[in-house]
Write a protein that binds this DNA or RNA. Structure first.
Lengths: 227, 227
DNA sequence: GTCTATATGGGGATAGAC
DNA sequence: GTCTATCCCCATATAGAC
């Protein structure tokens, strides 16, 4: 609780340094938490990865738990949203492929976020007390209604919407969370752009066809059968 | 390294006690590792759950890591096998529903095993060095060949077999690993037998239809529309 | 074989110099 | 704002009595 003397110039510089360091720490923490879980990650490891002494981590984030909470809240912000793009009057043949592609892109771009979230779920979400509340349940019910409406309008076959959503979530997140097993199965160090395209295509194909929607022609620009 | 005096009766009793205690510890360890991860679980917690003093855990399993390895190896034994039931000359319409049902049953009966395996994967399988070797890769390739053969015989539509397998794995394991989120979404404490039936049915329906196999009528004995 | 008491190390957190 | 040195707790592991 110190106040600085030279407010105008001092604060600007300090603010910049603070912002930079906090970001450094958050990125390092994300990596460590994803690799070792909450308990397994150490403040020391996070500090080293960030290139800072351990005490600085405690300076910016009072405790390890507080730091974890900050990482987690950043992830939650990223999380929601995508599924909200689907509406009852949409054409599933158009919006579902977009949704699957978005989720796959997410798995590829933010694998660490996906893994931290997954570990949190597996452990019973001990740090997300407030997240799964009545509001969440209502939101989910609203999302299932979209699929139910599609079925009623004959756009898709009658299907249990909740379990279909779970299928979409699991199959896409799998590419981030189980990357290790996937790489081993395919005999690669990591997946290429083409692998992700193949995964997205396969998933889209099975799901759309699976709910009775005609599979659209590949989007212009996608490799079709050159390989 | 003590030897007992009354060998014949003593050994039998000792063996029985040992077996019972080792089983108790393994079960307790499974629970703790699944809830808190490797580092997060404590030998104390495991001992308490098993109803034994901490030192006894070290007596039966020399170190925490050794105990974890024992738990993990039990899981790996359970793991493989199911996918081996599929053969090129099978009828996918018959064996795929059985496979999906078996995986779903596994998720329901051994959720802890599934979660420990999942955490291990997310962390990059640090304790499964030997597992993902050339033999594994070969095994996986063999499994993909089954689907390729089905496609060639016109039993299913042409599809990327590897990604289809990932879809089967992810969507079924999800019910064990993300039970927390699933329960919250459905507004339940835990899923009922009916929920699992609905999940299995939905999954089977989407996948079979998705790869161009006629969805079979519900198996005799299954509740069809009473609810 | 069982259990209490303890050694040892590592990790989170803080004091206090700069 | 930054960083070194240190405190203290807790977890693994073991020694040794019973």
């Amino acid at each position: 609780m110190l106040f600085h003397i030279d407010a105008h110039r001092g604060r600007k510089v300090a603010g910049r340094i603070r912002q930079k360091n906090e970001q450094l720490i958050l990125s390092a923490a994300e990596e460590e938490f994803a690799r070792h879980g909450y308990k397994g990650a150490t403040v020391n490891g996070i500090a080293q990865r960030a290139g800072l002494p351990k005490a600085n981590v405690h300076y910016y984030f009072n405790s390890k738990l507080e730091l974890y909470a900050a990482v987690l809240s950043g992830i939650i912000e990223l999380w929601d949203g995508t599924l909200n793009e689907l509406h009852a009057d949409d054409d599933p043949a158009a919006v579902l492929p977009a949704y699957i592609a978005a989720k796959m892109r997410f798995s590829r771009e933010y694998p660490l976020a996906s893994r931290i979230f997954a570990i949190e779920m597996i452990n019973g979400a001990p740090n997300l007390e407030g997240y799964f509340n009545d509001e969440y349940r209502e939101w989910f019910r609203g999302r299932t209604e979209v699929f139910r409406a599609w079925a009623e309008q004959g756009k898709i076959v009658p299907i249990d919407p909740a379990h279909l959503i779970f299928l979409l979530w699991s199959s896409t997140q799998h590419y981030a969370d189980f990357a290790c097993q996937i790489n081993a199965s395919l005999g690669k160090e990591s997946l290429t752009e083409q692998d992700y395209e193949a995964a997205t295509r396969t998933l889209t194909q099975v799901v759309l066809r699976g709910i009775g929607v005609d599979v659209p022609r590949p989007v212009a620009g996608t490799v079709a059968r050159e390989a």
